[in-house]
Structures are given as C-alpha cells and as structure tokens.
Amino acid sequence: MQRVERNPQDFGRVLSSMCTRPHPAARDAAERFLATNPGDPGTYETVASLERRAVDLLGGVVGLPDVAGYVASGGTEANIQAVRIARNRFETDTRTPNVVVPQHAHFSFWKAADVLGVELRTAPLSDYTANLEAVKEQIDEDTVAVVGVAGSTEYGRVDDIPALADLADDVGALCHVDAAWGGFVLPFTSFDWNFASADIDTMTIDPHKLGQAAVPAGGLLARGPELLDELAIDTPYLESTSQVTLTGTRSGAGVASAVAAMEALWPDGYREQYYESQADAEWLTAKLRARGFDVVPPVLPIVAADMPDRLMDTLRDRGWRLSRTGRDEARVVLMPHVDRAMLREFVDDIDEVFAEFDIGR
C-alpha cells in the first residue's frame, strides 16, 4: 500500500502555478472548518455566516459594498455559473444564446459553452487585450453575455472593462468579468476593472490564488441577488428551501480560509505583496532581456519569455516547474512564494545551462 506523504511537494521551484502557500491564518481556519458544509446553511449556521462575511469582504475588494455571491470551488465553477446566469436570464428571449469572449479568455468558458449548450464566439486581441471592434462585430440580438478579462492567465493583461460593459448594455446583455487571478492585485493599480468603475453584472475572483486562501476557494460575485436567483433550485429535504451553487456539498474549509486570509491581509498585506511581486517581475524581465531573451512587458506580475526548447527541458530536469503560453513562451507567475531569492537561483541556473551546453539564446 502506498503511504500518504507527510509533506506534499513544496513550492521551492514552482514558477508557473496560480496557487500559492496559504496564509497561516487561512491554513488554520481551513483545518478547523474542514468538515462543515455551507451547502446546508440551515444545519451549518456558523459556516453559512462566515460565507456571508467572505462575500462582504470580497465586495470591499471589488468596489461593491452590497455585493451578492458565494464561495465557489474556483474560477471554472464561477465562470460556468456566470454563463448560466446569462443564459437563464434571457431564455425566453432567444433559443440560440451566444456569449462573446476575447481570445485570451480562460478555457473554462469553452467548458461552460459545452455544458450549457450556448454558442461561444471569440474575438481576436490587439496588443494582448480584447479588440473592441472585433468584439462588437461578434455581438448580435442573441448575445446574452459579453466577457472581459481582468488579469489574463498567460500575460496578466486587462481588457477595457468599461467599454466592454457598454457594448453589452447596447444589446441588453450581461457583462461578466473574469478577475480570478487579477482581482487581488488590481485594486492597487490604475485600471478600471471592477463594479465601481464599470456597469458589470457578475465577476469571478479567487481567494485561493493571490488572495492566499486554501484551495478550493473561488468566488462568484453579482451586482444583486436577483442575478443569483437565476441559478436557484428547490432543495426539499434541507432546512434551506433553495440553492444557487453548482455543487451541493461543499467543504467549509475554503469559506473559512478565505475570510481568515482577507481579514489578515486586506488591504495593506495585499498591497505590499503586489508591489513586491511587480518589482520582482520587472527585475526578472531585465535579467532575461540582458541575456538576450524576448520578454513580454509585465503589466501585472506575470513574465513571459521566449526560451529555446532545450533550455526549457533542462530547467525542468533541474526541478523547475515551468509551463508555456499558447505561443510557447516560458511563463513565470510571480505568486507570493516566488521571491527574489528564488528568481536569483532560477537565473543562475539559466547561466549554468548556457555555460554547460551550446544552447542559442
């Protein structure tokens, strides 16, 4: 029988993950609420109250004090649910609903389209963000939602969210923003991306990414509870009468850890971490450029660099957990566990590989 490892893989050389070590308070809270079920709020009243607290805290992050929502399993569930809200809200108006997304939208939207039976229309990008004219061309009277990305998973880019919200409003569609990764750094930038700066309807934001909660702890937020009502089904054998979540039973670990992390870190801790991570992204960019690599400028703390296959393979052999973008660049996500010391070690390994092998830069 295989024994469960006492210590799972550490984060010492993990460069491309969008998850990180939970904050100590989040880890402790997750352990204490592991066996509770916020999917049955009538029975598990304490964790249900914590979930309301989590949503309130997320409302402060995204600029909407009276936000509605719940703690989901992650960005995929939240994005599927946002598409489901849009489809259900307009189901009497169209038999052929479509959702328009920019080309860099997360792959979960393709899952949503498949599961929900809606047409997914993709619009090309311009300088790594949604091309507004291309989005407009894809929209018609059967469009139920227009999606914007606030912190893309490959390059950390932010679409023109107010403009996309206006395009959605022009045809009476909903506007959904996927800020799963970017939501905990964007409050400290000058981008217009949230409920306070654009007429958006729903948003995905994940505490288990840069929010430093334990996995799983995603977030689906809505401008008002009437949008969540589009998801409600009857729950006849529970003390509560209906349920809006996609999953039924959910561990309270994610809920409790999200509250603990945000209470410990919002806003000053997140602000400090963003400034440190962005500085590290710019430091790594300069080091890679000095070694002859083409690097996509880091708008948020993600660095993408064009590296030869042999170098990537050798770095992986040395234990670096490094993924590629769709255009085959090496992708480094400056999560809280990726500090300057780790990056120096990474650059040193690059230099050693160049010295050891005849690899073109």
Rank of each mutant, 00 (worst) to 15 (best):
G252R: 03
L220Q: 01
V255C: 13
L265Q: 02
P216L: 12
P225K: 04
A256I: 12
R223T: 15
V255M: 08
D229A: 14
T241H: 02
A264R: 02
L228I: 10
S240V: 11
T235N: 00
E263Q: 15
T241S: 02
L220M: 14
G218P: 03
T249I: 12
E226P: 04
G252K: 01
T235V: 10
A253S: 15
S242G: 07
L231T: 04
V215E: 10
P236T: 09
E226Q: 13
A260K: 00
L238Q: 13
T249N: 00
S240F: 00
W266R: 05
V255F: 14
P216F: 07
T241E: 02
L221W: 07
P216N: 10
D234G: 04
S251A: 05
R223N: 15
A232I: 11
A261S: 11
T247K: 09
V215G: 00
R250T: 09
P236K: 03
G252N: 05
E263Y: 06
T241A: 03
G252Y: 08
G254K: 08
T245L: 00
S251V: 05
L221M: 15
M262I: 03
E263I: 15
V244A: 05
P236N: 04
S257V: 05
R250A: 11
A258M: 07
W266E: 09
V215D: 11
G219P: 14
A217F: 11
S257P: 00
I233Q: 03
A256T: 11
L246I: 10
R223C: 12
A253E: 10
L228R: 06
Y237Q: 07
E226W: 13
L228S: 02
I233S: 06
A264H: 02
E239Q: 11
A253N: 11
P236Y: 06
A232S: 12
L221H: 06
M262P: 03
P216K: 06
D229H: 11
G219L: 14
I233K: 08
L238R: 05
L265V: 00
S257L: 07
G224M: 06
Q243D: 01
S242T: 12
V215P: 00
L228V: 13
Y237L: 14
T235Q: 03
P216I: 05
A217M: 12
I233F: 11
L246A: 12
P216C: 03
A264M: 04
G218N: 09
S257F: 09
G252I: 08
R250D: 06
G224A: 14
L246F: 02
S257N: 05
E263K: 10
A258D: 11
A264V: 03
V244D: 06
V259G: 07
S242L: 05
T249L: 08
L220E: 02
R223D: 12
E226F: 06
S242W: 11
R223V: 15
R223Q: 15
A261M: 09
M262T: 03
A256H: 08
T241G: 00
R223Y: 15
S240G: 02
G248F: 05
A232G: 08
A214Q: 14
P216G: 09
P225G: 04
D234F: 04
G218T: 13
G224E: 15
V215L: 10
T241N: 01
V259L: 13
Q243G: 04
A214V: 15
A217S: 15
G224W: 07
M262N: 01
S242V: 09
G252S: 07
E239L: 13
Q243W: 10
V244N: 05
A222K: 08
L221D: 10
